[in-house]
């Protein structure tokens, strides 16, 4: 295919006619790819919102229609799949109207939003935990981003009932645009959400909240085996 400029000179090795256009194409692809990476890392990715079912959150939910539990505060959360065994503390809002979170010096502790439904009650139960703290490195909810649909989360209540949930999905949202309708909205059955941090870390802390969505599967009276489960203490997280 290459042009033969006059008589061939066997002594001189000339790969260029074939080499140069190929190299130019490869370099152009590299250039475009590199530019893509640069632009992609600077411009935030648009986030897809799941469509809501119409306007009426109660269209598929009947709060009085199921055999749901009464109110009893949660005491611990166990997620065997990722090795989470954490005590729960009650959390509300701080003075600015932001969510209270567990103390940073207690990396082993998670919390629950105590102004919402308790586990097994109809509605969304919301647990919050740190992904990491300054001193501990990974903290209580560090591994929850690995949870996949079908994984089991168990929450024990003060009355000794263990409520079993099944993970339906995991999402990450910019903190300024946390979709309350989805996180704090009702589902057809009692719901559970785990909230922790994710995304980039900057001056304002982490940019995103990772939310694990789960739905009620069953409940049982705590067995002896349940009660023997270890709780991960503070020492579990210190390096």
């Amino acid at each position: 295919m290459g042009e033969s400029g006059g008589a061939p000179e066997p002594a001189v090795h000339r790969p260029e006619p074939a080499f140069r256009p190929v190299a130019a194409v490869v370099l152009a692809i590299l250039l475009a790819g590199g530019l893509g990476l640069v632009v992609g890392s600077v411009v935030p990715m648009p986030h897809l919102r799941l469509p809501q079912f119409g306007d009426d959150p109660f269209a598929v939910a009947d709060p009085a229609g199921g055999d749901w539990l009464g109110r009893s505060e949660p005491t611990r959360v166990d997620i065997e799949a990722v090795g989470v065994h954490a005590p729960l503390t009650g959390l509300g809002l701080d003075r600015n109207g932001d969510f209270e979170v567990p103390a940073l010096r207690k990396p082993h502790e998670a919390g629950w939003f105590e102004h919402g439904p308790t586990p097994g009650e109809f509605g969304p139960t919301v647990l919050l935990g740190h992904v990491d703290t300054d001193r501990s490195g990974p903290a209580v909810f560090f591994p929850v981003k690995e949870l996949e649909a079908g994984d089991v989360i168990e929450v024990t209540r003060e009355d000794g009932i263990v409520v079993v949930y099944e993970v339906t999905g995991t999402e990450s949202y910019p903190k300024r645009r946390l979709p309350y309708e989805e996180v704090f909205g009702v589902e057809a059955v009692p719901a559970l959400r785990l909230i922790t941090c994710g995304g980039e870390f900057g001056r304002g802390g982490y940019a995103e909240n990772v939310v694990v969505f789960a739905r009620y599967a069953a409940h049982r009276k705590a067995t002896e085996q349940d009660e023997r489960r270890p709780l991960n203490g503070r020492e579990h997280f210190l390096d």
Binding site: G34, S41, H130, R135, G137, T196, Y206
Partner: peptide, 26 residues
């Protein structure tokens, strides 16, 4: 609420993957 998310991290494990992508792209 104020409408914002939860401050659930201290940042010690932040990988800053985004700037790694930026620099490798550059």
């Amino acid at each position: 609420t104020s409408g914002s998310g939860a401050a659930t991290g201290g940042g010690s494990t932040a990988s800053d993957a985004s700037s790694a992508v930026l620099w490798s792209g550059a």
